[in-house]
């Protein structure tokens, strides 16, 4: 499970002060505290598919893998080929010229994952095996 910290940033809660009659109080903002160094593995079939998809745009585009709340088991994987984000909050791993970005906020959930690709008509596509997951949904998109 991820770890968190509470940071007191007064000005961020101004709107909330207003709705309660302008009495004036500030609320601590909760941010994530634990960032781990991410190391992922990519199978040959996944790498081949990544290269096919991103072909010719390796310099400007990357694969971003992330996690968000939802799904049957608590979290959902999200994968996008997109222009390389400018934020410095990402950890980057390169696989034969293709860069995979993982945000620091997702580092503890996604560290150690193996990215695979199955070339089948039914149930095909990218597949993630996650050592941090205690359970996973049958569809493979959700974990917890």
């Amino acid at each position: 499970m991820r770890k968190y910290t509470i940071v007191h940033i007064g000005l961020l809660s101004q709107g909330f002060m207003g709705i309660l009659g302008g009495g004036g109080f500030t609320l601590p903002v909760i941010t994530q505290a634990e960032v781990v160094e991410v190391k992922i593995t990519v199978t040959d079939s996944a790498l081949k598919q990544m290269k096919n998809t991103i072909q010719g745009e390796e310099n400007s585009h990357c694969l971003v893998i992330s996690a968000q709340s939802g799904g049957c088991s608590g979290y959902l994987y999200d994968m996008k080929i997109m222009e390389k984000p400018e934020s410095g909050d990402f950890q980057i791993q390169e696989f034969e010229g293709v860069e995979v970005y993982i945000h620091n906020n997702d580092s503890s959930l996604l560290n150690g994952i193996e990215l695979d690709f199955k070339d089948t008509l039914m149930g095909g596509g990218f597949n993630i095996t996650n050592p941090n997951a205690s359970r996973a949904c049958g569809c493979g998109q959700s974990f917890g």
């Binding site: 991820r2 968190y4 809660s13 909330f16 994530q32 996690a67 968000q68 709340s69 945000h103 997702d106």
Partner: peptide, 24 residues
């Protein structure tokens, strides 16, 4: 509950979470 709310925030979404325990 707050851990769940914070941990599920997508990196590309505009979401800010504040702790108001005791304030109301």
């Amino acid at each position: 509950t707050r851990e769940l709310i914070v941990s599920g925030t997508h990196w590309n979404e505009d979401v800010k979470i504040m702790n108001g325990d005791g304030a109301l």
